[in-house]
Design a protein around this nucleic acid. Sequence first.
DNA 1: GCCAACGTTGGC
DNA 2: GCCAACGTTGGC
Length: 140
Amino acid sequence: MAYWLFKSEPDVFSWDDLVAKGAPEEWHGVRAFAARNNMRAMKIGDLGFYYHSNIGKEIVGICKVVAEAHPDSTAELKNGKVVWECVDVEAVEPFKRPVTLEEIKRTEELADMALVKQSRLSVQPVTEAEWKIVCRMGGL
DNA sequence: GCCAACGTTGGC
DNA sequence: GCCAACGTTGGC
């Protein structure tokens, strides 16, 4: 099983919105190849952190992949072909306390996280070691 | 296929 | 609100 990190601007679609929905959410709107390729690599059951960008700048909970990559219904075709894809995710569990970007930057073992190194990438891989450390920081 | 220009993201 | 970083687009 692999671990990931999903970024969302909370004023567009927040963790609370995902919880309130109580159903799978299509992770549409990603328009970057690196992020799309990460989604293509996902398998059902993979877990991901849910990160609030811009507002909060913190990891607030854990979600899970419930559908593998499929065409993004909000994207236009290019020359009749699908370019952008997305997975479906569902809320699993909130952090007892959010883990902020600032804390992550202060933590030596997390200095290599994509969140720090490639701040613009909206769907990122997370290593198992990073996953465990952040979960502990989040009170899980 | 390269690379300059442009647009967007996201932290500060 | 600014600006740096970086990914994409499009001309050549």
